[in-house]
């Protein structure tokens, strides 16, 4: 088998891994099922692409795209904490609104970046073994991972974790949980939009529909990561998320090479997530093959 799909898979795994780290922050740390992601991912692509074709420096464009993502998360957070709309619906509302906003920003359904100067072009110096993009993504992702790990060990980060664990307790310790929720959603969607901006530049175009189902891909990565690396240490968990993202891409690429219809990808991903999330219930059905020691641990 021709193995030259491996490097692109790793590159994709890394760049989408940034989005998965964002999903990890909301779903796992904050315990908030945030669907803003499907809108903030293409938002990142849209802002970056529009700015790049308008002549902006791609670094600046990527940074601004991330900030827009933060704002999208903040809006979801405000809908939830100030207007008391459920978390799920708040995310869906922002995501839906973003579809129109993204179209407005782009002026049309897609923008090509193939002939533009992209962020990688500023990092040609990383051209080790002719793999400048791989190296660029690797460095970016490592920096982000270390920053997230560090943040979650600071006082503020610990308060964010506690907000996802026990709101009553952390409020009684003087923390404004509304602010924490908004902060977490902002950070998460900032990462997601950053990922969207980088994906757009990596694939050479952005499309208003490129966010559809992205949340499930993020979740799949988080779940694969959890299965691979079983640890309650955040340092390991974030590493797991990135591994999960890379493995997801490798599996997908392999499946495509085995002539899986690309249109079935989202179905496959959804099934994977259903299996992983529904696993514990499936095990309860007492199917011998599904039983493991795991099921007996906690009551």
């Amino acid at each position: 088998m021709n193995l030259n799909f491996i490097v692109p898979s790793i590159e994709q795994g890394l760049v989408y891994g940034i989005m998965a780290l964002g999903v990890y922050l909301t779903f796992k740390i904050l315990d908030f099922p945030d669907l803003t992601v499907d809108g903030s991912f293409p938002l990142g692509g849209a802002v970056a692409a529009k700015m790049i074709v308008s002549g902006a420096n791609p670094l600046v464009a990527t940074l601004v795209a991330s900030i827009f993502g933060v704002l999208a998360g903040v809006i979801t957070g405000l809908l939830h904490t100030k207007l008391k709309i459920t978390g799920l619906l708040s995310g869906i509302l922002t995501m839906t609104a973003l579809y129109s906003i993204n179209l407005r920003l782009m002026g049309r359904a897609n923008i090509s970046l193939l002939n533009e100067v992209r962020i990688f072009d500023h990092f040609r110096g990383l051209n080790i073994f002719g793999r400048d993009r791989l190296i660029f993504f690797l460095i970016t992702v490592i920096i982000l991972k270390v920053l997230i790990d560090w943040f979650l060990r600071t006082e503020l980060g610990l308060a964010l974790i506690a907000t996802g664990d026990n709101k009553k307790m952390i409020r009684s310790l003087g923390v404004n949980t509304d602010l924490m929720t908004i902060l977490g959603l902002g950070l998460s969607n900032g990462l997601v939009a950053l990922s969207g901006a980088l994906v757009a530049q990596y694939q050479g175009f952005t499309d208003v529909g490129m966010g559809i189902g992205i949340i499930i891909i993020g979740l799949a990565s988080v779940i694969i990561g959890e299965t691979l690396i079983r640890s309650d240490k955040i340092w390991w968990a974030t590493l797991g998320v990135l591994f999960g993202s890379v493995i997801y891409r490798l599996v997908i690429m392999t499946a495509l090479r085995l002539n899986l219809n690309p249109n079935d990808l989202k179905l496959m991903t959804a099934l994977l997530v259903i299996l992983a999330l529904g696993g514990p219930e499936l095990k309860k059905l007492n199917l011998g093959i599904f039983r493991s020691k795991e099921g007996e641990v906690d009551a």
Partner: peptide, 22 residues
């Protein structure tokens, strides 16, 4: 907070009356 360590819980208790820092 069950998912956090004893020390992490105590950090948050220690910060009950002061601002959280980075």
């Amino acid at each position: 907070a069950a998912s956090m360590t004893i020390a992490e819980n105590l950090v948050l208790a220690l910060k009950r009356s002061s601002r959280l820092s980075l």
